[in-house]
């Protein structure tokens, strides 16, 4: 049976970072969301959100669809299959960690 140290070692740092976890959590509840909505829901600045999205896209956890709509850039973002699995796995790991920390099996 995996212990506390195994659970800690298994945590994906890319997913666990608070801002990225916030983005992935919001995306896990929808099919896709645009850049503005992600900014409004996380409170991140444009630059910060853009940087986190790039990291998540490079890791293959999200897909991005960048277009020009009415002469303005528009970005739609959604979770990839790998991203959906990663966030689900992360919640299970966090739950395991919490159980271990409380000493419950």
């Amino acid at each position: 049976m995996p212990g506390l140290s195994d659970d800690l070692a298994g945590i994906d740092r890319l997913v666990h970072e608070p801002a990225r976890l916030a983005i992935l959590s919001a995306l896990s509840a929808v099919k896709s969301a645009d850049f503005l909505f992600l900014q409004r829901i996380t409170g991140l600045t444009q630059g910060n959100l853009s940087s986190h999205l790039t990291k998540l896209e490079e890791a293959g956890l999200i897909w991005m669809d960048k277009r020009i709509l009415n002469k303005r850039p528009h970005t739609d973002v959604g979770l990839s299959e790998a991203g959906r699995e990663a966030i689900e796995r992360h919640w299970v790991q966090l739950e395991n960690l919490r159980r271990h920390a409380r000493g419950t099996p």
Binding site: A29, V30, K31, S32, A33, D34, F35, L36, F37, L38, Q39, R40, D76, G78
Partner: peptide, 8 residues
């Protein structure tokens, strides 16, 4: 104002 979301 708040952005667009496509539900599941």
């Amino acid at each position: 104002t708040f952005g667009k979301v496509t539900p599941q």
